[in-house]
Amino acid sequence: MIQQVENPILEVHDLTVSYDSKPVLWNVDLTIPEGALVGIMGPNGAGKSTLIKAIMGLLPLSSGYVKLFEQPLDTIRQRISYVPQKESVDWDFPTTVLDVVMMGRYGKLGLFKRPSKHDKEVALQCIEQVGMSDYIHRQISQLSGGQQQRAFLARALAQEADLYFMDEPFAGVDAATERAVISLLREMSTAGKTIIVVHHDLQSAQHYFDWVVLLNMHLVASGPTKDALTESLLEKTYGGKLTLLSEIGEQMRKTNLPKDIR
């Protein structure tokens, strides 16, 4: 079940990504409609983070191409935003919440320019949106997991982008933060922003997202939640009764691949 859309905001064509010449993502072909709240799901090691990092140009592609807003990445850098996994940075870094959120403005500033008053106003407003106004001058090492995630989210908001990539924003956060974050994401989606979220929890997925991408090294499904989040497709993604059969099928597909991308 791979549904392609007209005028996609994101188009991934024939994407293969390898670590040390060992492919971790094969032949991913997908399109995402504008304004969707998308969940990328799959078991550990399925290549979910790899996919969004490759889309954003953080990893070299072995084959294929990515188009955002029907353009190559470098021309539309200002319109994309990223919330990395919390663990990807050192939270003992000597800096405050406001400082971290201000970093979201750096891309718009250009070399040697300093943030202006307007940049600070935007940052403060974004901090308010995630409910962190009481903590603007707090050192980031003194934040809880949920607060760290909110700070990262505020930084992404401060980028004022149109397309957001978020790597497990619900990992290790409290229930209150999870609710606050999902309602904020829905608001953004209603306002026409496209949000692509790497997500783990199958239970909540069907309530959170209106588009789902199922991934396990290959693309298993991509489509509206009600069509993509079905039992048989989940089994195909996560293994189960159909594991053996689908493995043979996948194996056949792999052997048919041309040599140069292996």
């Binding site: 953080l58 470098d74 994309i80 940075v89 800096t95 970093m103 750096y106 980028q159």
Partner: peptide, 15 residues
């Protein structure tokens, strides 16, 4: 500051 704190994010915003 940005490349020290979060080099990946710096890459996204073009630094």
């Amino acid at each position: 500051k940005l490349t020290t704190f979060d080099p990946q994010f710096a890459g996204i915003v073009g630094i």
